[in-house]
Amino acid sequence: METPVCTETAGAAELPFDVFARDCPSRETLEHVTGRWGSLTVGALHDGARRFNELRRRVDGVSEKMLSQTLHALERDGIVHREAQPTNPPRVDYELTPLGREIAERLLSLIHFVEGSMTPVLAARQSYDETRGGR
């Protein structure tokens, strides 16, 4: 399989992939990792392997269908490993791959930054809503 090259912009260090290029496959992977359910799923798996229902409880608000789709996309991208145990009833565990762990570390830094920044964010929202007659 030939690796697609989608370098569109010149930078300090040119990479064969450019997420800003419309047809670059890196854009799809970025969406899988940074979309609401993808980022929460990757973050929830950072502490170790979890079963499907454990993940569903941890990622509050995700539907069974959406979690299943998210896990399939992350597995396809090599970020999550799915391990089916031959037991009765079947047991399926999900865990991060080495690539997934590296992504989770970076993602959790952003998550923690956002959580720690909520006081000024909430103040900005309130100010915006007051001056623009929002919500």
Rank of each mutant, 00 (worst) to 15 (best):
A44D: 07
T34I: 03
V80T: 11
G38R: 08
I79H: 11
V80K: 11
R51G: 13
G134V: 12
V59Y: 07
E8K: 07
G61L: 02
L108N: 14
I111S: 09
D93P: 02
T3W: 14
A13K: 09
R27T: 06
G100T: 01
A73S: 06
T97M: 04
H112L: 11
N53Y: 05
R56Q: 13
G134M: 15
S68V: 00
L96N: 07
R57W: 08
A44S: 12
T131A: 15
N53K: 08
T7S: 12
L110I: 11
E31F: 06
F17N: 08
L74Y: 07
R51D: 14
E102C: 08
F20N: 10
A21W: 04
G11I: 06
R135K: 11
T131N: 12
A12H: 12
R56E: 13
F113P: 09
Y94D: 14
V121G: 14
M1E: 11
E8C: 09
L110A: 13
R22C: 02
L71A: 00
R82N: 03
T97H: 07
A104M: 04
L110W: 10
V33K: 06
A10V: 06
E115N: 09
A104S: 13
T41S: 10
Q126N: 14
F20I: 02
F20P: 00
F52C: 01
M66E: 13
F17G: 13
G35M: 10
D47T: 00
C6G: 05
T7V: 01
L67K: 00
E130V: 12
R22M: 07
R57H: 07
M66A: 08
G48C: 04
G78H: 05
R91F: 00
V80C: 05
V114E: 09
R125C: 15
S26C: 09
T131G: 10
A104K: 02
L96E: 05
R58P: 06
A73I: 01
A124P: 15
T87D: 03
S63P: 02
L40M: 13
R58G: 05
W37N: 05
V19L: 03
L40A: 04
V5R: 14
V5Q: 10
G11R: 10
V80A: 02
W37M: 02
L30G: 09
E95P: 03
E28D: 14
T34C: 15
E54T: 00
R51A: 11
T97D: 08
R125G: 13
A104R: 04
A44Q: 10
H72L: 04
E83V: 01
S63R: 04
R36V: 14
D18I: 00
E102F: 04
P86R: 12
V33R: 04
S117I: 12
L122E: 07
E28I: 02
E2L: 15
E102G: 10
K65D: 14
E75F: 01
E2M: 14
E2I: 15
R51H: 12
E28M: 03
G35K: 08
I103N: 04
D93H: 00
I103R: 06
G116P: 01
T70G: 06
N53F: 03
T29E: 15
L71D: 09
R125S: 12
A123K: 12
R101S: 06
G43N: 14
R57A: 07
R36Q: 08
P25N: 09
A49R: 05
R106N: 08
R101Y: 03
A44N: 08
A13H: 11
L45H: 05
A73N: 11
L30W: 09
L110C: 10
Q69R: 04
